[in-house]
């Protein structure tokens, strides 16, 4: 077995644009769930409107990349408002139900044939990257990044994607150490207590929903830049993977979602590389190569369970916080 390329491929997942996209989405969820206590189960929906907002505005309306980006963000803000206005006054679990349903509605609207001319239906969209690639300041060619060779488009995307992750981390850090963050964390603990202290809880929850949703939209755009827009990519499982990443890293932490995403993708790559090769050389005679492709999710699931059982506060979470959970 070629262990070298197995681990080189896996190691690239630490910096791959997809890892950055998942990290961004998980940071949005950290704002929602970790800091504010909002149970958003529709992060895939925010990613979908970001991705489709970017692609459709480019393809259908001919927007340049920056206008397309703003459209994607605006779409996520609108989605956050639509979800938040009726549900944020209700108990927390209602938001969970509404968001998971809304994310599915969004996905199905993009899948249905009725709007195929705009959305590409199940086939999805591609060819929206021209304006984005045209503004790439890096000269065309192949570049060595450590042991990996990547072309100028990928290098450009890596810079932008991780730059966004850095900016998002900085923003969350600034916000959560401020009095604004104090109100947000107070709402997570007990919103009635915060209300009794004269804070407009509804408004803060809305701000949090919009902020985390916009991060989801950025994540959606970064996610579709190295590939095409496919409605099948935005299934509820996407949201659950992002929750797994968040809990792995630590829900109310800055670096948790980033490191969580790196670990998640590296594990996924190691398991898929290993099972695919193992089936190829006959180590797993009871399995077809098709099954091998699926088994990685089982193994990742087990790995995540082990981590969550033995380190339930996540990698960056404080053990102290957990000491009181049972009280």
């Amino acid at each position: 077995m070629d262990w070298g390329s197995l681990f080189t491929n896996a190691a690239y997942e630490i910096i791959s644009p997809t890892t950055a996209a998942y990290a961004l989405a998980a940071m949005g969820l950290a704002v929602h769930f970790g800091y504010t206590g909002l149970l958003n189960f529709g992060q895939a929906g925010f990613m979908a409107v970001g991705a489709y907002g970017f692609a459709i505005s480019t393809l259908t309306f001919g927007f340049p990349w920056w206008a397309a980006l703003l459209t994607g963000i605006a779409a996520s803000v609108v989605l956050a408002l639509i979800l938040g206005i009726p549900t944020l006054r209700l108990r927390a679990d209602y938001l969970a139900i509404v968001t998971i349903a809304a994310a599915e509605i969004v996905r199905l609207l993009f899948t249905t044939n009725t709007f195929a001319a705009v959305t590409g239906s199940a086939a999805g969209l591609s060819g929206y990257k021209t304006s984005w690639q045209a503004m790439n300041p890096i000269p065309a060619g192949n570049y060595n990044i450590g042991p990996w060779v990547r072309d100028h488009n990928e290098v450009w995307l890596l810079i932008v994607a991780w730059g966004l992750v850095g900016l998002a981390a900085l923003l969350i850090w600034l916000l959560m150490r401020s009095p604004w963050g104090r109100v947000i964390k107070g709402i997570r603990e007990d919103e009635d207590a915060v209300r009794a202290l004269g804070k407009n809880v509804y408004s803060y929850k809305m701000q949090s929903l919009v902020l985390g949703g916009a991060m989801g939209a950025f994540a959606g755009m970064v996610f579709v830049l190295p590939r095409s827009v496919q409605p099948g990519n935005f299934q509820p499982t996407l949201t659950f993977f992002i929750y797994a990443i968040l809990l792995l890293g630590g829900a109310a932490t800055i670096f948790g979602p980033i490191i969580g995403s790196m670990i998640f993708w590296t594990l996924l790559s190691i398991f898929s590389g290993f099972t695919a090769r193992a089936v190829e050389i006959g180590w797993l005679p009871f399995m077809t190569s098709l099954q091998a492709g699926q088994v990685r999710f089982i193994l990742v699931g087990i790995a995540l369970m082990v981590i969550v059982i033995y380190r339930p506060q996540g990698i960056f979470g404080s053990k102290k916080e957990l000491a009181f959970v049972k009280q």
Partner: peptide, 29 residues
Amino acid sequence: TKALGMMTVMDNMLLGAQNQTGEGFFQAI
């Protein structure tokens, strides 16, 4: 009692103060 458990005693107290500039989203940054 609604003490905000996962926040420090001091943060609980500071949350009570009114008209805080830093409680605005943009000012907070």
